[in-house]
Design a protein around this nucleic acid. Structure first.
Lengths: 159, 159
DNA sequence: TATTGTCGGTTGCATAGGCAACTACCTTTG
DNA sequence: CAAAGGTAGTTGCCTATGCAACCGACAATA
């Protein structure tokens, strides 16, 4: 046993390595089973639930960089999992929606996602998870308040 | 207000974006004030607390990739913040320790780190933070159990 | 309607980060 | 002590990610 290491007590550090571990584990699963990256999966998850959206909508709902959204959409389209249709209201953007194949895959992915969430957070009560969730939300709010140059959290009802 | 989006309720997702927000905020601070990356800062934090260590020790204590540790060490040495001395016990490795300049910087950084932690987690009780910390630890344990191919958490007293 | 500013989407570039292979050295086994 | 296998550190490569600049289209103002 080593002496107490302050870094290990540093909460941002704990948060970072835990998040990395969880994300890495989940990313590995999606990659192996579906060949999807995390950004691609996120876009699919939102599309499958919301129906056709523009990339702008997707950046808002996923909180990802618009470039990340763009690239994920491009891949999904190339793989035939999603299709773009012109946006009559705005010539700059398209409506992106899942294809039948994409919807089929979405149907397989979401149960897997829930299952992985269940396993990773196994052994916690609903109260603990609620508290955890709300703490994450409040922390995010704190950082947003401190940090003027990033996303404006007031724009996101979903956060 | 948008309809409820499942992605926003997905705990791994919440964890990820919160961690990114916190890490990004902190990384920005270290970069601006000291020109340090997060890996570099982590190495400094451990070195400043533990005294001379090998890169192997540092990879264990920071949980970073050995390449990340190596590169951080190289930068610190080039900047004169740390120095390597031969390891009499093992010709393959060196003992790395902070220089006077590095120790000086360490003395400035650690209070800043604590201050940022305090601000990011402002408004939470000690009990909440303890619960949060132990939940992160348990989640990390779960992922480690599920995931055979990454780090072996049993090696790390610090985790 | 011409101008100016803004916005969605795209591309290019620059950086970070991880994996795999390699070197030099250590350790174990016969 | 020779051989075989393992380990610390290093380098190169490849991918992921983000920013900044750009293009075409919309919006506001005159």
């Amino acid at each position: 046993m080593q002496p107490t290491i302050p870094l290990a007590k540093f909460l941002p550090y704990q948060l970072s390595i835990t998040s990395n571990a969880v994300s890495g584990r989940i990313a590995q699963e999606y990659r192996q089973r579906f060949g999807l990256s995390v950004p691609e999966w996120r876009v699919m998850a939102v599309l499958g639930d919301s129906g056709a959206l523009t990339q702008r909508d997707l950046t808002q709902r996923t909180l990802m960089d618009k470039v990340a959204v763009n690239r994920a959409c491009k891949v999904l389209e190339e793989r035939g999992l999603a299709a773009r249709t012109p946006n009559a209201q705005d010539g700059r953007s398209h409506h992106l929606d899942l294809s039948d194949a994409g919807r089929e895959m979405h149907g397989q992915i979401m149960p897997l996602a829930r299952e992985m969430e269940r396993r990773v957070f196994a052994g916690f009560s609903a109260e603990e998870l609620d508290a955890f969730s709300s703490l994450l939300l409040r922390v995010r709010g704190q950082v947003g308040d401190l940090d003027g140059d990033t996303i404006d959290s007031r724009n996101f009802g979903i956060v």
